[in-house]
Nucleic acid binder design. Structure first.
Length: 280
DNA sequence: CTACCATCCTGGTTGC
DNA sequence: TGCAACCAGGATGGTA
C-alpha cells in the first residue's frame, strides 16, 4: 500500500518507537524477498543500536550505530508493524522479525514479496544501484514549478507515466498520480512535455498538497497506535477519483450530466482514473 | 536515450 | 461453493 505518504508514516512510527533500541536478534523466515537477504544479515545486525530512521523516495532507511544503513522497501504489499510483546505466532507472510533489548518487536510482512532489504555503508551510499538514479523529493523546499517544468520538458510519455517514473521525481505512485492530476485539472493522457507553465504550476501544488494531506491523515492515527503500518490513517477515505469509476466527482459540472462520471483507463498496464469534464 | 512490455508473487474479488 | 479470470498501491530489465 505504500507510496510516499504511507512510507513517511511508517518512518515516523519507527522513529517514535525504536530509536535508541538495541537489536537483540533478527529472525529470517525465508531467504529473501525480491532479492535474497544480504549474507549474514542477522549476524551483522545483532547488537547494533538504532540511531535514526529516515526516508528516501519510498525507501525506509534505518541508521545503525556503526556506519551501516538498513535499507528497506515495502514493495506493493509490505508492512512493518511494531508491537511491545512477543508474537505468540506468526502470520503466513511474516518474513522478518526483529526483537530489541528494550522489549519491542518489529515484524515485516509482505504477501507478494516485491519488497527488499539491504545493508549499505555510508561509503557506498551514493553509488547504490537502487538509489543513485532517483529523482528529487517532491516535498523538498527546492521542488517547485520551474524544477518540474525542467523535468517534463520534451518528454513524449504521458504525464501520468512521467509522474510514476522515479527517475524524474520520487514518491508518487499510482494512486496519488491520479489524485494530483485530478486536482490540477489535467488529463492523465496528456503528453508530459505539452503542459503549459500554468498547468505545471498547478500540478506542482497539487502534488505537494495531496502528499501532505495524506501524511497528515496517516499521522493522525499514529498518535494512538504503536503500530507503524500506516494503514489506519490511510488516505483512502479522501480519494476523489482513484477507484471511483462511474461515480461523479465532488462538486463537478459532470454531476447530473448523462455522460458524466469518472473514467477508468489503462496506461502502461496500470489503471488511471479521471474526470473528462474537469480534466482537459 | 525513450517507450513499451513482461515479470517477480500472493490474495481478494468477481463472475459463471 | 467451486473455480477460473482478473485485478492490485512497485520497480527492474529486456527489447525495439
Amino acid at each position: 500500500m505504500p507510496e510516499l505518504p504511507e512510507v513517511e508514516t511508517v518512518v515516523r512510527g519507527l522513529k517514535k518507537s525504536l530509536i535508541g533500541h538495541r537489536i537483540k536478534n533478527i529472525l529470517l523466515r525465508r531467504d529473501g524477498l525480491r532479492f535474497p537477504f544480504p549474507r549474514d544479515f542477522s549476524k551483522i545486525l545483532q547488537g547494533r543500536r538504532l540511531e535514526d530512521v529516515s526516508r528516501r523516495a519510498k525507501y525506509i532507511i534505518i541508521h545503525l550505530d556503526n556506519d551501516l544503513r538498513w535499507l528497506c522497501h515495502l514493495g506493493m504489499s509490505g508492512s512493518l508493524v511494531i508491537q511491545m510483546k512477543a508474537p505468540h505466532s506468526y502470520q503466513k507472510h511474516d518474513h522478518v522479525i526483529m526483537e530489541t533489548e528494550e522489549g519491542a518487536w518489529l515484524i515485516y510482512n509482505d504477501a507478494r514479496r516485491f519488497g527488499m532489504m539491504d545493508l549499505v555503508t555510508s561509503e557506498n551510499w551514493d553509488n547504490h544501484p537502487l538509489l543513485k538514479n532517483l529523482g528529487p523529493e517532491p516535498l523538498a523546499a527546492g521542488f517547485d514549478a520551474t524544477r518540474l517544468s525542467g523535468l517534463l520538458k520534451g518528454k513524449e510519455v504521458s504525464i501520468k507515466a512521467a509522474l510514476l517514473d522515479q527517475r524524474l521525481m520520487v514518491g508518487v505512485g499510482n494512486i496519488y498520480a491520479s489524485e494530483a492530476l485530478f486536482r490540477a485539472g489535467i488529463r492523465p493522457t496528456r503528453r508530459a512535455g505539452s503542459l503549459t507553465k500554468e498547468e505545471v504550476k498547478l500540478l506542482t501544488l497539487s502534488i505537494k498538497e495531496v502528499l501532505k494531506e495524506a501524511i497528515k491523515a496517516g499521522g493522525s492515527s499514529l498518535r494512538n497506535y504503536v503500530q507503524a503500518n500506516g494503514e489506519l490513517g490511510y488516505f483512502q477515505a479522501k480519494w476523489q477519483v482513484y477507484g471511483k469509476e462511474g461515480q461523479t466527482c465532488p462538486g463537478c459540472i459532470c454531476q447530473g450530466q448523462k455522460k458524466g462520471g469518472i473514467k477508468r483507463i489503462e496506461q502502461s498496464g496500470r489503471s488511471s482514473f479521471f474526470c473528462p469534464q474537469k480534466q482537459k
